[in-house]
Design a binder for these strands. Sequence first.
DNA 1: ACCTGAACACCGTTCAAGT
DNA 2: ACCTGAACACCGTTCAAGT
Lengths: 189, 189
Amino acid sequence: MVNSYTDLVPTPDRTSLDAIVRAASDLLESDGLPGVTMQAVASRVGVRAPSLYKRVENRDRLIQLVAEATLADLTARLDGLSSVAALADGLRAFSKERPAAFRLVMTPGTGTPVASGAYRAASERILQLAGELAGEEHTLEAARTVTAWATGFIIMELNGGFNLGGDVTRAWEYGVATLVEAITAARPA
Amino acid sequence: MVNSYTDLVPTPDRTSLDAIVRAASDLLESDGLPGVTMQAVASRVGVRAPSLYKRVENRDRLIQLVAEATLADLTARLDGLSSVAALADGLRAFSKERPAAFRLVMTPGTGTPVASGAYRAASERILQLAGELAGEEHTLEAARTVTAWATGFIIMELNGGFNLGGDVTRAWEYGVATLVEAITAARPA
DNA sequence: ACCTGAACACCGTTCAAGT
DNA sequence: ACCTGAACACCGTTCAAGT
């Protein structure tokens, strides 16, 4: 039985969760994390702030979704690479294209727990390659060493933390070479 | 000439910049960065929020001062140590005592530039020791490699990023040993 | 069912008025 | 000179009322 305006003209949705997450990602990169306000996101998708709550629980959850989307992009980006050095370079390149998103994912600070499955997916290739280098027994330690080094290096670089002069890219290459060699050398016979 | 109440009874100051920074540091550790509100800090030093602006420009500057005080503490903490491994262990120990302050200092994100002199002081010993290990030519690269690794490792550890099981401390020791050996091996003849 | 304005609690910050 | 209440702009979030 037709008995209301709603039944006759179901207004088509004016936005979507996907568009919201994308708008938040754009704002994150252009205005930083504090710039990702519900109002700014809403205005970007052509809606008022309260409407966002039909699709996202709250702001924290939205930031979390941005982090997870970023990890998915990163995983895709690293997928084809086949050496530890290429992987490290890919991670660094990604950090330069999307520094704010990279920071969000790698140093979420408090209050934004990201589904660990997303990290696992992104770590898959480094585990594989580290295993080849270090031997099965040291796979996990080797992968952690390389990941920690690359992450730390990139974060320091993004923060302008290398203020003692010198060639930063040279330090990067020195680090990759040093680590790969060391891990290979530590391989059990 | 005495002509006002003020001249007769100069009210003693009820707080100080030092007390404010200390209160902010305590709040940072207990409630996280978002918990460091001007009102919470003010109430902790026994004053109302607007009074804080007599001693600090604004909240961002206050956070910055907390970061600088943290770096000073860290520098003092690392001062006596005399091996790269001891330095790395000291950094990790500090991160467990004051995780929020450590995060603030190592991953300030955007909006809180810390005086670079404070970082320089904290880096002094690692530069010295890395130089002994790596040789003068590679001092800077070696110091950056170790610092990046330790920072990245600790941040990942604080974030609960090591969710693949395994012994985290074992990975830490593997990393220290591997890096020290590699840097020593790369030393020019 | 989705969207909105109005409202609430809570921030950071300013400023005139107190002492 | 330092401190305060009141006020302002701006958040996140809720909710009744529209369509």
